[in-house]
Simulated assay, not measured.
Amino acid sequence: MKKEELREEQKQILTEFATNPKKKEEDQRIFKNLSQVDLIHQAQTIGITASLPIEIDTSKIIAHLWDLGKDVYLAKVVPGPEHKMNFVHYTYRSPLKKSAFGVEEVSDPDAEINNELDLILVPGLAFAEDSKQRLGFGGGYYDRFIASHSEVRTIALANSKMLFKTATWPIEDHDLPVEKIITAD
């Protein structure tokens, strides 16, 4: 199946699942499982996104990271043809604004940018259990970022509708796997 076709199919499946009480239950189990992962406790600077309704809810995760004394950075797309992104320091007082993609980003132009993070929670629409490959939203932002910051550790969060035994989509040279996938199981 082509990536574009699977992206559209996954968006539809995840949109329907977003209203199912099972999604909230899975999100809570994923949060619990993530909170027990050594990578979270070892990292001090952590990049994350403010989740869309179809994604794993990151609001509790972000609050938990703050409670642990972690420095949290939200992904922010840099306008332009390069398809780059930065990670911007995020506190409970940071002003947010929705991006063109509908994702909340820190809107303070003076907020600290830190692209030398210890860990990134990488979003996606689908994840392969065997290869840890991910199907992202199609912009290539995370693949480019991770390729240019090879020392950063990566974790993905996947509910039952995002998890595939193996990738059913084509894997290209620039597609980078994540290090670990946290599920509800």
Rank of each mutant, 00 (worst) to 15 (best):
K2Y: 11
K2S: 15
K3E: 14
K3F: 13
E5Y: 01
L6Q: 12
R7H: 10
E8K: 15
E8L: 14
Q12E: 12
I13W: 03
F17H: 13
A18W: 08
T19L: 08
E26T: 02
Q28E: 15
R29E: 13
I30N: 08
L34G: 06
L34H: 02
V37M: 06
D38Y: 00
I40D: 00
H41N: 03
Q42S: 07
Q42L: 09
A43N: 11
Q44D: 15
T45F: 02
I46P: 02
I46D: 03
I48Q: 01
I48W: 02
P53E: 05
D57G: 03
D57T: 08
T58V: 05
S59D: 11
S59F: 10
A63F: 01
H64G: 11
L65Y: 12
W66F: 11
D67G: 13
L68G: 01
D71W: 01
V72H: 03
K76R: 15
K76E: 09
V77T: 15
V77P: 04
P79E: 14
P81Q: 15
K84H: 14
H89N: 12
S94F: 05
P95Y: 05
P95M: 07
L96D: 04
L96C: 07
K97D: 08
S99Q: 13
S99V: 11
F101K: 09
V103P: 09
E104A: 11
E104R: 09
E105A: 00
E105P: 01
S107D: 07
P109S: 03
P109N: 03
D110S: 10
A111C: 03
I113M: 04
N114T: 09
N115S: 11
N115R: 10
E116G: 00
D118G: 09
D118F: 05
L119C: 01
L121Y: 04
P123F: 01
A128N: 10
D130V: 01
D130W: 00
S131Q: 07
S131C: 10
S131Y: 04
R134T: 00
G138T: 11
Y141G: 07
D143I: 13
R144I: 02
R144L: 03
F145E: 07
I146G: 04
A147H: 00
H149E: 12
H149D: 11
H149R: 14
E151M: 04
I155L: 11
A156V: 04
N159P: 03
S160F: 00
A167G: 09
A167P: 09
A167R: 03
T168H: 10
P170C: 08
P170R: 10
E172T: 14
H174S: 14
P177H: 10
I181F: 01
T183N: 01
A184M: 05
A184C: 08
D185P: 15
